[in-house]
Protein backbone atom coordinates (compact mmCIF):
# COMPACT_ATOMS: atom_id res chain seq x y z
CA UNK A 1 0.00 0.00 0.00
CA UNK A 2 1.31 3.46 -0.79
CA UNK A 3 1.52 6.22 1.81
CA UNK A 4 -1.10 8.33 0.02
CA UNK A 5 -3.73 5.59 0.58
CA UNK A 6 -2.81 5.34 4.25
CA UNK A 7 -3.12 9.13 4.62
CA UNK A 8 -6.55 9.10 3.00
CA UNK A 9 -7.94 6.07 4.81
CA UNK A 10 -6.80 7.21 8.25
CA UNK A 11 -7.60 10.87 7.63
CA UNK A 12 -4.05 11.94 8.47
CA UNK A 13 -3.10 15.56 7.99
CA UNK A 14 0.01 16.16 5.91
CA UNK A 15 2.63 18.49 7.31
CA UNK A 16 5.75 17.92 5.18
CA UNK A 17 7.01 16.33 1.97
CA UNK A 18 3.56 15.78 0.44
CA UNK A 19 5.36 15.08 -2.84
CA UNK A 20 6.67 11.83 -1.34
CA UNK A 21 3.29 10.17 -0.73
CA UNK A 22 3.69 7.69 -3.58
CA UNK A 23 6.21 5.75 -1.48
CA UNK A 24 5.34 2.14 -0.60
CA UNK A 25 4.60 1.42 3.07
CA UNK A 26 5.80 -2.13 3.77
CA UNK A 27 4.98 -2.23 7.48
CA UNK A 28 5.12 -0.08 10.55
CA UNK A 29 6.84 0.56 13.82
CA UNK A 30 5.44 2.31 16.90
CA UNK A 31 7.82 3.68 19.52
CA UNK A 32 8.77 6.87 21.30
CA UNK A 33 12.30 5.70 22.00
CA UNK A 34 14.59 6.83 19.22
CA UNK A 35 17.20 4.14 19.80
CA UNK A 36 14.48 1.51 19.69
CA UNK A 37 13.42 2.80 16.28
CA UNK A 38 17.04 2.90 15.11
CA UNK A 39 17.48 -0.68 16.23
CA UNK A 40 14.22 -2.21 15.09
CA UNK A 41 12.34 -0.21 12.46
CA UNK A 42 12.86 -1.52 8.95
CA UNK A 43 13.37 0.50 5.75
CA UNK A 44 10.02 1.39 4.22
CA UNK A 45 8.17 1.21 7.56
CA UNK A 46 5.77 3.92 8.70
CA UNK A 47 6.77 5.21 12.16
CA UNK A 48 4.07 6.06 14.70
CA UNK A 49 5.26 8.27 17.58
CA UNK A 50 4.37 11.13 19.89
CA UNK A 51 7.84 12.68 19.68
CA UNK A 52 7.77 16.05 17.90
CA UNK A 53 11.37 17.26 18.10
CA UNK A 54 13.65 17.46 15.10
CA UNK A 55 15.71 14.38 15.86
CA UNK A 56 12.85 12.19 14.65
CA UNK A 57 13.79 13.31 11.14
CA UNK A 58 17.39 12.16 11.51
CA UNK A 59 16.18 8.76 12.70
CA UNK A 60 13.76 8.45 9.78
CA UNK A 61 16.54 9.33 7.34
CA UNK A 62 19.00 6.85 8.81
CA UNK A 63 16.43 4.02 8.83
CA UNK A 64 14.99 5.04 5.42
CA UNK A 65 11.46 5.11 6.80
CA UNK A 66 8.43 5.81 4.59
CA UNK A 67 7.20 8.55 6.90
CA UNK A 68 6.31 9.63 10.43
CA UNK A 69 2.83 9.77 11.97
CA UNK A 70 2.64 12.03 15.02
CA UNK A 71 -0.24 11.06 17.32
CA UNK A 72 -2.51 12.56 19.99
CA UNK A 73 -3.01 15.85 18.16
CA UNK A 74 0.57 16.89 18.75
CA UNK A 75 2.24 19.16 16.21
CA UNK A 76 5.88 18.88 15.06
CA UNK A 77 8.24 21.66 16.18
CA UNK A 78 9.13 24.38 13.69
CA UNK A 79 12.65 22.96 13.35
CA UNK A 80 11.24 19.49 12.78
CA UNK A 81 9.12 20.74 9.89
CA UNK A 82 12.08 22.54 8.34
CA UNK A 83 14.37 19.56 8.62
CA UNK A 84 11.77 17.09 7.33
CA UNK A 85 11.08 19.27 4.29
CA UNK A 86 14.81 19.54 3.66
CA UNK A 87 15.36 15.78 3.94
CA UNK A 88 12.14 14.84 2.11
CA UNK A 89 10.59 12.92 5.01
CA UNK A 90 6.76 12.97 5.04
CA UNK A 91 5.31 13.90 8.43
CA UNK A 92 1.60 13.44 9.09
CA UNK A 93 -0.40 14.26 12.21
CA UNK A 94 -3.55 12.78 13.70
CA UNK A 95 -5.66 13.33 16.80
CA UNK A 96 -5.79 9.54 17.31
CA UNK A 97 -3.58 7.87 19.93
CA UNK A 98 -0.90 5.34 18.94
CA UNK A 99 -3.06 2.30 19.78
CA UNK A 100 -5.81 3.40 17.41
CA UNK A 101 -3.45 4.34 14.59
CA UNK A 102 -1.71 0.96 14.76
CA UNK A 103 -5.05 -0.87 14.96
CA UNK A 104 -6.30 0.89 11.86
CA UNK A 105 -3.05 0.25 10.02
CA UNK A 106 -3.46 -3.47 10.70
CA UNK A 107 -7.04 -3.32 9.42
CA UNK A 108 -5.67 -1.81 6.22
CA UNK A 109 -3.23 -4.68 5.92
CA UNK A 110 -0.18 -2.71 6.98
CA UNK A 111 1.45 -4.97 9.53
CA UNK A 112 4.98 -5.25 10.76
CA UNK A 113 6.73 -6.74 7.81
CA UNK A 114 10.45 -7.25 7.47
CA UNK A 115 12.14 -4.61 5.34
CA UNK A 116 13.89 -5.14 2.09
Amino acid sequence: MILKDVVEKLGLKERTASEKLAVEVNGGYASDLLSDVLANAQPGNLWVTLQVHQNVVGVAVVRELAGIVIVNGREPDEETLKRAQEEGIPIMVTSLPTFDVVGRLYQLGVSRAPGR
Binding site: P43, H53, Q54, N55, V57, G58, V59, V61, V62, R63, E64, E79, E87, R116
Partner: peptide, 27 residues
Protein backbone atom coordinates in the same frame (compact mmCIF):
# COMPACT_ATOMS: atom_id res chain seq x y z
CA UNK B 1 23.48 21.41 19.41
CA UNK B 2 20.22 19.68 18.55
CA UNK B 3 19.71 21.85 15.45
CA UNK B 4 22.60 20.13 13.76
CA UNK B 5 22.48 16.78 15.53
CA UNK B 6 22.62 13.96 13.04
CA UNK B 7 23.95 16.08 10.21
CA UNK B 8 27.43 14.55 10.21
CA UNK B 9 25.89 11.08 9.81
CA UNK B 10 23.55 12.41 7.16
CA UNK B 11 26.47 13.83 5.15
CA UNK B 12 28.42 10.63 5.59
CA UNK B 13 25.41 8.73 4.31
CA UNK B 14 25.21 10.89 1.18
CA UNK B 15 28.89 10.41 0.45
CA UNK B 16 28.61 6.62 0.83
CA UNK B 17 25.66 6.67 -1.57
CA UNK B 18 27.63 8.69 -4.10
CA UNK B 19 30.58 6.31 -4.06
CA UNK B 20 28.26 3.38 -4.64
CA UNK B 21 28.29 1.55 -1.29
CA UNK B 22 25.48 -1.04 -0.99
CA UNK B 23 22.25 0.03 0.77
CA UNK B 24 22.62 -2.57 3.55
CA UNK B 25 26.14 -1.41 4.42
CA UNK B 26 25.00 2.22 4.30
CA UNK B 27 22.18 1.45 6.75
Amino acid sequence: DFNNAGRASSRLRNILKQIGISPLVIR
